[in-house]
Simulated assay, not measured.
Amino acid sequence: MNILLVSNMYPSQAFPSYGVFVQNTEAILKDEGFTVDKAVLRKKTGKLKKALGYAGHYANIVRKGLSGKHDAIYVHYAAHNAFPLLLLKKLKPSVRIVTNVHGSDVVPEVASQEKFQPYVKRLLKKSTLIITPSHYYERLVQEKYQAATPIRIFPSGGVNSEVFYPNREQNPQYMKHYQLDPAYRYFGYVGRMDVGKGWDHLLQAFALFLAAHPEEKDRTRLIMVGSGKDDDAFFAMKSQLGLDDSVIHFPLMKHKDLAAIYNLVELFIFPTTRKGESLGLVGLEAMACGTPILASRIGGILDYVEENENGWLTEPGNPEDLARGMAEYTALSDQQKQQVGQAAYQTAQQYDQKKIQSKLSSIFHELRLTK
């Protein structure tokens, strides 16, 4: 079966993490015996380069779609790819589209994304199948669009257990490599410094936590990994809250470095406020390293975090509740922390890439049977 993979996000040498799970999906399909062709766009910087990049990308989608060489078109990021696919469907009604919706596809994060919604709705109705990353997102799609198109669940390529796994015996080397002081324990955050990611609530919560527990100033540090449009606001808030010595920042990292950070931190904090958090793969990656998670009670996170079993849940956008969660974690015994960490690891194994890849394969085999 020949599949045309369509995405406006795909990794490049300059931006290795940009759309990496789309690349992971490609690897899964090839591993399952499918032939995969691509019409993808790698990250461009500057308005002119972006405009030219999208023009070429859209033309490539239509050209390859009309070639008749593909049994199905598998698209990621419906909002930004809907227009050329709808045009293709009009020119060639027989083409079969499988649409994977996630994130801001369904829940726009900023006003400028709202303009794509009519196209997303039309694309979902024209699709042969819809794929969502979680049961939460499946319900969201059904409620918002009421499309008759069948929906299947596939958790965004899953977790690569060859990269993300417990490896704490290497922590002394990691500490040295990242110039961290082993006298401290570390909490961690991985995510863009962008709207809805909750980095601001986390900074506020950590300041509250340290103020309520002054002894923690000499024993706990917060590692925050990520960059984004709000970088300037992040650094300003960090200074305003007096956290320059307590918060350690790293820019975007490759997966092997993220795995090291997940192993270094005692507690992974996932403070998102996004209703469009369709799965939250970083949470599962941390859990795959045996690290407990303190996360917002929202979105696809609810598919895998069980309160007091493999992690803890807090009210989204509430720094006080987040600070309370940190305090409750520190009050646990070492044995209790280890038990939750082990449960987190066991949960993440259910999302192991090798274990779940057959789910994606079965979706496309089902498509072949309906031809």
Score class of each variant (00 low, 15 high):
residue 30 K to W: 00
residue 30 K to C: 10
residue 30 K to P: 07
residue 31 D to W: 00
residue 31 D to V: 00
residue 32 E to N: 12
residue 33 G to Y: 04
residue 33 G to D: 08
residue 35 T to I: 12
residue 35 T to E: 13
residue 36 V to D: 01
residue 37 D to S: 15
residue 38 K to I: 13
residue 39 A to V: 11
residue 39 A to Q: 07
residue 40 V to G: 01
residue 43 K to H: 10
residue 44 K to S: 12
residue 44 K to G: 04
residue 44 K to A: 11
residue 44 K to C: 12
residue 45 T to D: 08
residue 46 G to W: 02
residue 48 L to I: 15
residue 48 L to C: 02
residue 48 L to V: 15
residue 49 K to R: 14
residue 51 A to M: 14
residue 52 L to D: 03
residue 53 G to P: 11
residue 54 Y to T: 08
residue 54 Y to F: 15
residue 55 A to E: 04
residue 57 H to V: 00
residue 58 Y to H: 12
residue 58 Y to I: 06
residue 59 A to Y: 09
residue 59 A to K: 14
residue 60 N to I: 01
residue 60 N to Y: 01
residue 61 I to F: 00
residue 61 I to Q: 01
residue 63 R to Y: 14
residue 65 G to L: 08
residue 66 L to K: 07
residue 66 L to A: 03
residue 67 S to R: 07
residue 67 S to P: 11
residue 67 S to T: 10
residue 68 G to H: 05
residue 70 H to A: 04
residue 71 D to C: 03
residue 71 D to T: 01
residue 72 A to F: 10
residue 72 A to D: 01
residue 73 I to W: 00
residue 74 Y to T: 11
residue 76 H to T: 05
residue 77 Y to W: 12
residue 77 Y to D: 00
residue 77 Y to G: 00
residue 77 Y to T: 04
residue 78 A to H: 01
residue 80 H to A: 09
residue 80 H to G: 09
residue 81 N to H: 03
residue 82 A to H: 09
residue 83 F to W: 07
residue 83 F to M: 13
residue 85 L to M: 11
residue 86 L to S: 10
residue 86 L to G: 11
residue 87 L to A: 15
residue 87 L to R: 04
residue 89 K to C: 04
residue 89 K to R: 14
residue 93 P to Q: 06
residue 94 S to M: 03
residue 94 S to E: 15
residue 94 S to F: 00
residue 95 V to N: 09
residue 95 V to T: 15
residue 95 V to L: 07
residue 95 V to E: 06
residue 96 R to T: 08
residue 97 I to D: 00
residue 98 V to A: 05
residue 99 T to D: 05
residue 99 T to H: 02
residue 99 T to M: 03
residue 103 G to H: 03
residue 105 D to Y: 13
residue 109 E to D: 12
residue 111 A to W: 12
residue 113 Q to I: 05
residue 113 Q to L: 12
residue 113 Q to P: 07
